[in-house]
Amino acid sequence: MKKEKIVQFHKSGSGNISTRLSIPASWLAELGITEKEKKVIIEKKEKEIRIYKGEEE
């Protein structure tokens, strides 16, 4: 499944830049990511970014 999204860029008062990307809640639910189990692993390989459900401590 594909969906085109826009990355939001935010500049802090000290000049640092952070980003945000909204992911559909239904996609996260399919991965078993919930408000209680919200840990994820983000992996970058070449020109792809992948998100996996992480292990809860």
Rank of each mutant, 00 (worst) to 15 (best):
M1H: 15
K2T: 13
K2E: 06
K3C: 09
E4K: 02
E4L: 05
E4N: 04
E4D: 06
K5P: 00
I6E: 00
I6S: 01
V7D: 02
V7E: 01
Q8C: 05
Q8S: 09
F9V: 13
G13Y: 14
G15N: 08
G15R: 07
N16I: 07
N16A: 08
I17Y: 05
I17A: 09
S18P: 07
S18T: 13
T19Q: 06
T19W: 06
T19C: 07
R20C: 09
R20K: 14
R20P: 04
L21E: 00
L21D: 00
S22T: 10
I23Q: 01
P24V: 04
P24M: 03
A25L: 14
S26F: 11
W27P: 02
W27F: 12
W27I: 12
L28Q: 00
L31G: 03
L31N: 05
L31M: 10
G32F: 01
I33L: 06
I33E: 00
I33K: 04
T34D: 03
K36E: 06
E37W: 08
E37H: 10
E37C: 09
K38M: 07
K39M: 14
V40N: 00
I41P: 02
I42H: 00
I42V: 11
E43F: 08
K45W: 09
E46Y: 13
E46G: 12
E46W: 11
K47A: 14
E48C: 13
E48Q: 15
I49P: 01
I51W: 00
I51C: 01
Y52M: 12
Y52R: 12
Y52Q: 13
K53C: 05
K53F: 02
K53R: 10
K53Q: 05
K53W: 03
K53G: 04
K53E: 01
G54M: 07
G54Y: 06
G54C: 05
E55W: 11
E55K: 15
E55P: 13
E57M: 12
E57P: 13
E57H: 11
E57S: 13
